[in-house]
Each structure stands twice: as structure tokens, then as C-alpha cells.
Design a protein around this nucleic acid. Structure first.
Lengths: 349, 349
DNA sequence: ATCTGGGATGACAACGTTGTCATAAGAACA
DNA sequence: TGTTCTTATGACAACGTTGTCATCCCAGAT
């Protein structure tokens, strides 16, 4: 590494009196003005002569002054920041959503706190408490399944919250959801159009809101088309490689084995794809959630895509609308899904 | 939606005097004690009798009191929060890294601000300024390529920073990097072990630190093995579907076409995989960065995997070490990569 | 009974900012 | 010249918390 460059870590602890960060007081003294005038300049308030403004800006630059937002926040009783609580930051759907939220946040001059609950109600509660203690202006939450009211105690009464991906049990609030039923119906329709009659559903744990919505819609869609609903062809469990493979084997060894499979989320799709590797039969497949490389697999995987970015954007915008004083009743927005046809849904029945 | 449940958004704006959030003063009054004693209880300081403690806890619960962290932060001159500036939150490598950082942060009782620079130096500078104005304890930055010193002006002198994935141009500070050269050498070795002699490198833009490190290592590795370095077989440009396909066609139509390709990052791998779809020849492939579904493609894709989670963890831990007063000189940590052999590297030359 | 020590408690002054209000200095008017 | 209005400016008190230090009270020692 070059030996030239600005060193960030001094090799020695600071000695003598530690010069703490300059404050408005320091700037004021240096510019020979009052504190309030500095404040005015920093906040671009009008009513400061060009001359003094120049002096102050100069002093600010000299000292490297940066306003202390903690102090401003305290004075104003609110912070220009948002909190986001999700289940797993690294999951593609969620990281896309976060990105969109962040985009909207900076457009409104806000910063974004993120916290992940890992699906744990305790951790979620702690995160929400920590965030509201930090006086975030608003919260965007993907609620973990938990006792009704668990979140409610953590949320201050006056806080602005938008739930995303799923509603909070026992709480009525703004909510951005995917049109899960619509997505499933489109998938079933696509499969029946291709003459599939025996369709299986492999979903995640049934205590997840999206999963029950999806499996319910699945049952409903079959009935609507006069197809039998066979519980041996519906599996709802946390997808892990081993059990998924077993489930798949069981289903495909049935006399009336399914000729097509719909999955409940991306994890299930992955599990099924892995499980399928060891099978002779090649059922058609439609996965819930799009994923990278879906188009390069053979066959390319048809999916029900959610618009994660748009969900995040909508959530953030709704939140800012609340923050700027919209006191209409809570609203729930359903965001359309899109069936991306790639081939795996058209395998011969 | 059920009509039972706790309503979060009143349909009407608050009327009359808006009851603002209760403070320690309110709790103190209700419990009939002094403010400081409340503070002691809230912070679990010793020296409060069990009796008064019980009263205070009761009052806290009654009022729904939550300490105002802005005030505490102001008083203490620091906040228990970290800032993370990355390029793109939604990119898998980065979201994994963020997740690991967040994990370490909450273990230390800190919250995490995230901001994305989108690779733009202006936006990066703004983010860093906003974060340091918010008095974050420390920063973790994936520096955008920018003028030397650009970041330096945004950073307060005394701040603790760890750079991750790449160093900041012109700044000397703690740094967590992948062993890019090691990864490339392993890949080249793997290919030559399988008798490949003509290997191409398809990387991203050459002004990215990681890309120059990787392509340099590639050249070096070829030379080391007495293989010719042919510039027609090295491409360094932002990977987009069209140009990638063209590049690939050009290379594969050479008389001495490459029998194997190494890519510079995940985006390049994707571009190459897409481009390969339209080609007759099937060169061997080793991608830099692992990705979902790599094992399900045909052939499964051999990759040089970085441990994003570990990088985030190390970065955060190093940061906390600094925060707790380690004043040793800056250090750079190189994290080993791992060659995950899956098959695409072993195609016949 | 007095003294001493320690544990429990609260008064008070910060922290760095912003909102309110008062004041000073000109400018415009009669 | 005196009056009024405007504009620029600063003094001062919050905001809600924590650190410092003084006080109080009671147990135990004298």
C-alpha cells in the first residue's frame, strides 16, 4: 500500500485535552457573531446579510464544523429517519424492497435504520422499541408471526407504521401486500391451459401469512375449475433439502402423481429444483417469486413475480404521506403479481 | 379485514392539546420521586431501593414511557449506532455483508444506518456527511471510486472507519479485502490442471479496484505457468447483455479460441452465461463470486467464492475494537476466497 | 446520646441546537 | 428632527437526558 495518503487512524491515543468537534458556539466565536445567526446560515434561513453569511461559511469551513443532528433532533422532538424491520436483510426480495425504501427516504432527506428480526418475535419487539426510542419518524415492518398485540406494546401510540408483505396480527394499520391469490390463480390457469389436471402445491410453513393466502387461493382455484383438491398433493412445511426431496418422491410416486407443481415461495422453489434433480419424472413447475438465473435453468422456470421494489416504494411513500399529516383511515394496498412465462410451466402433462 | 384489532391510524387528526410522549419528568412525578432516580432505574444503575424501583417501573409501564435516545445521545456526545455506506443494497454480496454487520451491531447494542451510494461519489459524500452529522459511532464504507480526498473532507477527523471490499483512494485506514489474487490463482491452477491452455478473462470496468486486482492476478498467473497473455482474450467493461454476447462471439471465433473463461464478478458471470446460450462452443467457466442456483445449472458453475458474511463480521468487529479505544495503526485484512468446484471448470479443453 | 459512614435520593447544570422574543441600526416618511 | 417600519442580529430558554455533587436518613460504632 502506498505510504502517501491521509491517515485515518492515529497510532497513538489522543493526548492532552481532546479537541471535541466544533459546535455552533465555536463557529460563532470565530466569525464574531451570535450563535443564532450561525444556526440561520446552517439551516439556510433567510434574514442574514450576505456579508455575515460569508464570514460564517468561512468559519464553518475552517473549523470543519458539522451540525450535531442529535441536538437538533432533541430540540425538534423528531428525527429525520425511518426504521425498517424485516426478517432477513440478505433475502433477495427483502433487500430489493429495502433498496427502494432507502431511495425514497433519501429523496425526503431521511436516513434509514435497518434491523432484522430473523422471524423472532422477541427480537422484533426489541428492534421496534429501539427504533421508536430513537424517535424515528416512521416505521416499515415486515411483521414476524407473533402474539396479537405484541407489536402494539412496542409501538408508541402516535407512531406511523406501514406493514409490508404481510399484516401484523391483531393490528390494523397501513399495509402493502402482494396479490397472492391473483398470482396463484394466474399460475393455475396457465397450467390448466396447458392441460394439466393434477397440480401439487409445495409451500412453506402454514403459519406464515403469505403461505396460507397462497395455499387457500390454490385450493380455491382448483375448485373453481372443477379439479379435485387432493391433500396428498399439498405440502406445507419449512423447506429443507432432505424433507423436500422426500415430499417430492412421495408425490411423484403416487398413482395419480402430479404433472405440475406450484411452489409457495423462493425457498420452496429452490428446494423443489434440488429435489427434482434426483427424480425421473419432470413435472411442470411454477415458482412463487422470481429469482436470478431462472431463465438459464433447463427448462427455464416460469414464476409468479412480485414487484419488491415497487412494494418498498409504495410503503415508503405511504409512510411519508402519513408523516406529512394525512389522517385518513388505514389503507391496504394489494400489488399485482406478474406471471413470467419461461417454459417450465408448459411441460407436457 | 377483521374489525377487531388495535387501530394504528386514527381517522382524525389529534384534537386539543396533543399529549406528547411521556418523559422522565412525567414518570418521576407519577412515581413521586426525582428525575434522576428514574434515570437510574432506566439505565439499571445500582443504588435504588427495591421499593422505589418497583414504583418507578410501574409508572413507566403505566405511561408507556420510552427513553428519548436523542437526548441521551446529545448528553453523551455519541450515539450507539453505526453507519454503512455501500454501492447497492440489493446486490447479494452486499446484502449478505450488511446482514453480518447488523448482527454484530445488535450484539453490541447498536443500530445500523444504511445508505447506498449507487457508485456515485457525490451521493457517497452526502451519505457520509449525513451519517457523521448524526454522530454515528463508526462507519463501514465500500468506497465509490472518486477523487482522492473526497471522502476525507466528508469524514470528521476523529471518526472510526473501516473500508470493505476495496480501499478508499488516497486514504489510509482499516480495510477488509478479499484475497482476489489468491482466488484467481486457484482458478487458473484448476483450469490448467484440467489441461486448459487458452484461458480468457471477462471482467468489469477496469477502474474498479477489485477488477484490476483480479485481472492483474490473472495475467500474472498465466505468466507464472508459461502461458501466453493474449489481450484479445481479456475484456474489461461494464457487463451488459449485448456487448457481453459480442465479446464472447469475438473470442470464441478466434482461431486460438479460449477453452476456458474466468469472470471478474457475478455480473460478468451472468452476462457470460447468457451470452453462452447462443454459442456452439462450450468453454469451461469459473465465475468470481458464488451465486444462487450455480449448482443447478448445466453444467453446474464452478466459482471463486468470497465470504461476504465473514467480511461484514470482521469489518464490524474491527470497528468496535476501534470504538473501544484500540489505537494501533491501520490494518488491512485479506480474507481467503474458496474455489467451489462444480463441474463447469472441468469441461474438456 | 453523639458521631460516622454509607446507601438512597434529588437539585442542578450541562450537552448543542432551535424557537421566541427583544433590541439595535438603518431607511423611509412626515 | 422625530417617528415608524423594516431588517439584521443576539440573548435566552427550552428540548429530555445524564453526571456531579450535595443532602438526608438510618444503622452501627463510639
Amino acid at each position: 500500500m502506498s505510504e502517501f495518503g491521509i491517515k485515518l487512524n492515529s497510532a497513538h491515543p489522543p493526548r492532552g485535552q481532546v479537541r471535541s468537534r466544533p459546535t455552533m458556539r465555536d463557529v460563532a466565536k470565530r466569525a464574531g457573531v451570535g450563535i443564532k445567526t450561525v444556526s440561520r446560515v446552517v439551516n439556510k434561513e433567510p434574514g442574514v446579510s450576505d456579508d455575515t453569511k460569508a464570514h460564517i461559511l468561512c468559519a464553518i469551513a475552517d473549523l470543519g464544523f458539522r451540525p450535531n443532528i442529535s441536538a437538533r433532533d432533541l430540540k425538534q422532538g423528531k428525527t429525520k429517519s425511518l426504521g425498517l424491520v424485516c426478517e432477513d436483510l440478505s433475502e433477495p426480495f427483502q433487500s430489493c424492497l429495502i433498496r427502494a425504501v432507502e431511495e425514497v427516504a433519501i429523496k425526503h432527506g431521511h436516513m434509514l435504520f435497518v434491523a432484522s428480526s430473523a422471524g423472532d418475535a422477541d427480537r422484533e419487539q426489541e428492534a421496534v422499541q429501539a427504533l421508536s426510542s430513537r424517535q424515528v419518524g416512521g416505521l416499515i415492518i415486515t411483521p414476524a408471526r407473533s402474539d396479537p398485540g405484541r407489536l402494539a406494546t412496542a409501538l408508541p401510540k402516535d407512531s406511523s407504521v406501514v406493514f409490508v408483505d404481510r399484516p401484523a396480527p391483531g393490528l390494523i394499520g397501513d399495509c402493502i401486500l402482494a396479490d397472492n391469490a391473483g398470482g396463484i390463480h394466474a399460475a393455475v390457469q396457465h397450467l390448466t391451459n396447458h392441460r394439466h389436471r393434477r397440480i401439487a402445491f409445495i409451500g412453506d410453513q402454514p403459519n406464515l401469512f403469505t403461505q396460507t393466502e397462497r395455499v387457500d387461493a390454490f385450493r380455491h382455484a382448483l375448485q373453481e375449475r372443477g379439479l379435485p383438491v387432493d391433500d396428498r398433493m399439498i405440502s406445507m412445511q419449512r423447506p429443507d433439502p432432505v424433507t423436500a426431496a422426500a415430499t417430492l418422491t412421495d408425490m411423484l410416486n403416487l398413482r395419480d402423481f402430479p404433472t405440475a407443481i406450484i411452489t409457495g415461495n423462493a425457498l420452496c422453489t429452490f428446494a423443489v429444483l434440488h429435489g427434482l434433480a434426483g427424480q425421473k419424472r419432470r413435472p411442470a413447475l411454477i415458482g412463487f417469486d422470481d429469482f436470478a438465473m431462472a431463465d438459464l435453468l433447463d427448462p427455464a422456470v416460469t414464476v409468479i413475480a412480485q414487484n419488491a421494489a415497487r412494494m418498498g416504494e409504495l410503503a415508503a411513500e405511504l409512510l411519508f404521506k402519513r408523516l406529512s399529516g394525512a389522517h385518513t383511515g388505514s389503507q391496504t394496498i394489494r400489488l399485482a403479481t406478474r406471471l413470467i412465462v419461461r417454459g417450465s410451466g408448459e411441460l407436457a402433462p
